[in-house]
Simulated scan of single mutants.
Amino acid sequence: MPKEEFFVDMTCEGCSNAVNRVLSRLEGVQYEIDLPNKKVVIESNLSVDVLLETLKKTGKEAKYLGCK
């Protein structure tokens, strides 16, 4: 499965919890949240568009950075 890297404008534990909440609803997704660097690495067979839309549901700015 490819690993995709995203920027998410997280500033606190609550922000990373929001990311955790939306990603945990997706089937077959593994992810790492790097709060200090505002990055999320997601390992999944889902499209980048689906992952980005899911991250945007947190209400935070989210951008695709590329394949890791």
Rank of each mutant, 00 (worst) to 15 (best):
M1N: 08
M1W: 01
P2D: 12
P2K: 01
K3T: 09
K3I: 11
K3P: 00
E4H: 05
E4M: 13
E4V: 05
E4D: 09
E4Q: 04
E5D: 04
F6L: 04
M10I: 07
M10P: 07
M10K: 09
T11G: 07
T11F: 08
T11E: 12
T11A: 06
E13Y: 07
E13S: 14
G14P: 05
C15W: 04
C15F: 06
S16V: 07
S16W: 10
S16T: 11
N17T: 07
N17K: 14
A18C: 08
A18S: 08
A18I: 02
A18G: 03
V19I: 06
R21M: 15
R21D: 15
V22H: 00
L23S: 02
S24V: 07
R25S: 15
R25C: 13
L26K: 13
G28V: 02
Q30F: 12
Y31F: 15
Y31R: 02
E32C: 04
I33C: 00
I33F: 01
I33D: 09
I33H: 01
D34L: 11
L35E: 09
L35V: 09
L35C: 04
N37R: 06
K38W: 02
K39Q: 10
V40D: 10
V40P: 08
I42H: 02
S44Q: 02
N45D: 15
N45C: 08
N45K: 03
N45V: 05
L46S: 14
L46K: 15
S47H: 03
V48A: 10
V48N: 12
D49C: 07
D49Y: 06
D49I: 13
D49N: 14
D49M: 14
V50R: 14
V50I: 15
V50F: 12
V50N: 14
L51A: 07
L51V: 03
L52F: 03
E53C: 03
E53V: 01
T54H: 04
L55S: 06
L55Y: 12
K57G: 06
K57E: 15
T58Q: 13
A62R: 00
A62C: 14
Y64S: 12
Y64L: 10
L65A: 08
G66V: 03
C67M: 13
K68S: 13
K68C: 12
K68H: 08
